[in-house]
Write a protein that binds this DNA or RNA. Structure first.
Lengths: 341, 341
DNA sequence: GCCGGCCATTGACACGTGTTAAAACGTAGT
DNA sequence: ACTACGTTTTAACACGTGTCAATGGCCGGC
């Protein structure tokens, strides 16, 4: 609204040259108030002001659809409204995207924006980028070491530890390995094998899952599972599994790092003429779509990632501190029976 | 440190209170120069300075390992050193991660940091987040509409259009569809079907690829391919394909949106007792690992994404303008023969 | 001897914000 | 009438940076 000529012509206290960006000066001008008032009202400290003043401010801000500058705010407060999800270069498939979307929609309630950082080649550059960017929170999916995390927190950035290592380090991964082994040790006394990814960079959870399988085997008096690194192609998988598959002594049970590895193991078993699940039984992880579409249909472990993320997001609210509640890994994983075990 | 009484008392021109952050004031102090000198030297405008001065500045900056504040720089220049890759909520699998990593490592040469934004639920919030964050560049993977892009560019943010829509909109996708159809129309005159994803939100490239297949069919005098939306589970796929598979009149050729859909189609064909590739031939897209591991091994289309990204990254250099060179879509895609065609 | 001109360096400003201390104002109390 | 006080609003500062105009020193030339 144009202010009448008889009103006191409230001019800016400080000069400001024209620009395309809508700043809080513009809001103050339109509202006929000072910039300081605008800032205080818009930041929730408006209870000391008259109600009509507050309304004038919010109305003006709305009309100009004013968005405070991230740079200015970050410069003053030292904090941004960013959440960075640091992810290793691993094949999360759709799960990761669902997880990120869940985090994004949940944290939108706090006015946070979520971005993903793939810490692919070198984690050092990701550390530097995060320290430079100064997000409010970093969600760490096994990208940073303890020393890195210390530096990040020293910079005043909150760290949400990885799901798996939150309270009980790698508790869920171990439980997954145990469940795989338990399924394969059910009826015939199978000799266990753990099939890991050949590309160790992608094999983030492999060691923990293999440890879980080994624990389960030990508790049942079975032999320690042999560990095999399986490439994701026909010939490579065949060669990697030749020592185990060529002259099998009794039924085998192969715990696989994920459904992709399971597909490779099935391919190798087929190439050696072994029958599934009689001579070779297979259990994957992830319950992917293709795992259920191929023949034979894969026996696999489903992880209720959304439920886990819900726990994580609960600790994401700015004011809130760590929940610290201990989770039960077993309640988040389920065996999906198929035709390979 | 207490400065000696006989030295020239180089005091700060402007006062500054102690803080944990290393600022350019600290560098200037240690170098015994002015902050302005520091800034100019570190920003490449140092050719006007004495060489010894430049060395003093760089040495001091190195010693304190000074990193300029993003907020301060962004506030002054209005530009950040961020690149945001906007990605739809689609299953890119490992390709996306490789692509992002490639972009990140390439653009690290320009001192840029790459972050990914999953524009999952609502693109509007992603648009707002990007306008707020003011990155230097946005790489758009079919997230934003033309109007959105206009707003982004109006804000002074560079936009690298999606690979597929860079010069010839969807040219590559159409070529993929054509190549699929060409393979399936080779020997027996098959009736073509295009199998799309049931979840239309994920089916970004489906329409374009189906168009390509239709063009190829028309150019060969074949019937227009029927379009079927296939869910990624056994029962859903079976029901979706029942009209086509139950009473097939002659050999069928199914172009699939990707290898996952191809797996679903194979599952449905098997459930109807149809032989592959005699009664039903299938061609996927993406050349995924599992597609090559399953039986029968999938015939599929490989896209040389790294090569495409290399072109994209070439246009990413800050000073450089659009290359504008027209690409040959056919030179980036290859048919990978398998056992399903 | 003084002035113009060149070189190396610096002071000052602006970017947009949040917060604190102080000012303006109206009202009641002595 | 003048002061003390509570309420409402504002001026001023600081955050850290990049850039432009200006300063100081130095030399040669008239």
């Amino acid at each position: 609204m144009a202010r009448g000529v008889w009103e006191t012509p409230r001019v800016r206290t400080q000069k400001k040259q024209n620009s395309s960006r809508v700043t809080s000066w513009d809001v103050a001008d339109l509202a006929g108030l000072s910039r300081s008032t605008v800032s205080q009202v818009l930041n929730g400290h408006g209870d000391r002001f008259n109600e009509e003043t507050r309304n004038r401010v919010t109305a003006a801000a709305e009309r100009l659809n004013y968005r405070p500058s991230r740079a200015g705010r970050a410069l003053k407060t030292g904090v941004t409204d960013l959440i960075v999800v640091a992810v290793p270069n691993i094949t999360f498939g759709r799960q990761l995207q669902d997880t990120v979307e869940q985090i994004a929609s949940e944290s939108a309630r706090f006015g946070m924006s979520v971005f993903v950082r793939y810490a692919g080649s070198d984690p050092a550059s990701t550390l530097a980028a995060i320290l430079d960017m100064r997000p409010a929170t970093v969600v760490n999916f096994r990208v940073f070491t303890a020393a890195d995390l210390e530096r990040i927190e020293a910079a005043g950035i909150r760290v949400i530890p990885s799901l798996d290592s939150s309270q009980d380090p790698a508790g869920i991964e171990i439980s997954i390995g145990r469940l795989q082994a338990r399924e394969l040790l059910r009826e015939p006394k199978r000799r266990l094998v753990y099939a890991l990814l050949a590309d160790t960079r992608l094999d983030l959870y492999g060691p923990d899952r293999a440890t879980g399988a080994a624990e389960e085997a030990a508790s049942r008096g079975a032999r320690d599972p042999a560990r095999v690194r399986v490439p994701l192609n026909r010939e490579g998988a065949r060669e990697a599994l030749r020592p185990v598959f060529e002259k099998p002594e009794g039924p085998l049970g192969v715990c696989c790092y994920n459904d992709e590895v399971a597909a490779a193991v099935l391919s190798a078993a087929r190439s050696f003429g072994l029958s599934v699940p009689d001579q070779v039984a297979v259990v994957g992880v992830d319950n992917t779509d293709v795992g259920q579409l191929i023949t034979p249909r894969l026996t696999t472990i489903a992880v209720d990632l959304p439920a886990l993320v819900r726990l994580l997001v609960a600790a994401l609210e700015p004011g809130q501190d760590e929940t610290g509640q201990r989770i039960q890994p077993e309640s988040f994983i389920t065996l999906v029976p198929g035709e390979t075990s």
